[in-house]
Simulated assay, not measured.
Amino acid sequence: MSVLEVKHLKKSFGPVRAVEDISFSVTAGEIFTIIGPNGAGKTTTLEMIEGLVPPDEGEITFGEMDWRKNAAAIKKKIGVQPQSSAMFDLLTPEENLNLFASFYDRSRSAEDILQLVNLTDHRKKHVKKLSGGQRQRLAIGLAMISDPEIIFLDEPTTGLDPQARRNIWDIVLQLKELGKTTILTTHYMEEAEKLSDRVCIVDQGKVISIDTPAALIDQLTEEREVHLIFLDGADAAESAALFSDDLGSVSRTERDGSSLTIWTAHPEDTLYQLFSYTKERNFQVEQVSIREMSLEDVFIAFTGKEWRD
């Protein structure tokens, strides 16, 4: 069941067209991720959906509700991750949560939220003394205080170290277990690939493609890169390359000294035949790796750009 429908959103700021044409729908309970480089229109799209910025054109509906007629009801339905500046630095996480809870008719207890975002041990510490990762976890907790059905997270892990980022991932996955619908933006490809039920690729204010991470990768190619390094040097690599070129499963090869890269749609069959060949000739292979395609490869293929931070 669709809980959010976005149709042909457009938004300009003076001569700059931030959002050109954005349309998608979000299903109840899914993690829906909008990815794209800085300036792609991710944040502006989220702000329009959250009711913070009016669109120039387009429709935003939450089931049967829209912002013009049902603003009060929608505000009870959604939770928005506040920016760091929206927190009160001289209050504790517990006090911030209780303050935000007072803004709503119905809310979850601060105790529940502290446990959810793993801040129970820091409940009495002033916010200004929290680490960046702890502040981000509190921001997610503040978005959850009204017990919303839909949570919006705008680049929640930007600037965090790898461990802090993984902690945020765990919270997002917990929200899914609670049946919440999560809409997040990111420009970290691994994050989108690990968390998302579906991914919406946006660039220059337009939707490039929408699908599951696996389906997007499968659209790209069925080929995989197989990389081998030979202990016996360049001659062994060249011999193996000539053999591989004659295999029906291999589309192309590339050799660099004792290193050989093979592109094949059937890496297991290709390696079985290649290892039979190298064993016959007593060639020693020092290293073998198979590179899987990723969402970053999808982005580059769809947009023709290097990934931009």
Rank of each mutant, 00 (worst) to 15 (best):
P15F: 04
V16G: 02
V16T: 07
R17P: 01
V19T: 09
E20R: 14
E20Q: 12
D21L: 12
I22A: 04
S23A: 02
F24S: 11
F24P: 04
V26Y: 11
A28K: 13
A28S: 11
E30C: 08
T33S: 13
T33L: 07
I34Q: 10
G36A: 12
P37Q: 01
P37Y: 04
N38C: 14
A40Q: 13
A40I: 08
T44V: 11
T45P: 12
L46T: 13
L46M: 15
E47Q: 15
E47N: 14
M48H: 05
I49Q: 08
G51T: 00
G51F: 00
L52F: 07
L52H: 05
V53L: 07
V53Y: 06
P54E: 10
P54R: 11
P55E: 08
P55L: 01
P55I: 04
E57V: 02
G58Q: 05
E59I: 01
I60M: 03
T61N: 01
T61E: 00
T61W: 00
G63N: 02
M65P: 07
R68C: 10
N70T: 04
N70R: 06
A71R: 13
A71M: 02
A71W: 02
A72I: 13
A73Q: 15
A73R: 13
I74L: 01
K76I: 00
K76S: 00
I78G: 00
G79C: 08
V80W: 07
Q81E: 09
P82I: 10
P82G: 11
Q83Y: 05
S84P: 04
S85E: 08
S85Q: 09
S85Y: 05
A86C: 11
A86E: 14
F88I: 07
F88C: 09
F88N: 12
D89H: 02
D89R: 04
L90S: 15
L90Q: 14
L91F: 15
P93K: 07
E94S: 10
E95S: 08
N96W: 09
L97K: 06
N98K: 15
N98A: 13
N98M: 14
L99M: 13
L99Q: 13
L99Y: 15
F103M: 08
D105V: 14
D105Q: 15
S107I: 06
S107A: 12
R108L: 05
S109G: 14
S109A: 10
A110D: 03
D112Q: 12
D112L: 09
L114I: 08
Q115N: 12
Q115W: 05
L116P: 01
V117M: 04
N118H: 15
N118Q: 14
T120F: 01
T120C: 00
D121H: 04
H122R: 14
R123W: 02
K124F: 13
V127K: 11
V127W: 10
K128E: 08
K128R: 09
K128C: 03
L130S: 03
L130M: 07
S131E: 00
S131V: 00
G132W: 04
Q136P: 07
R137G: 14
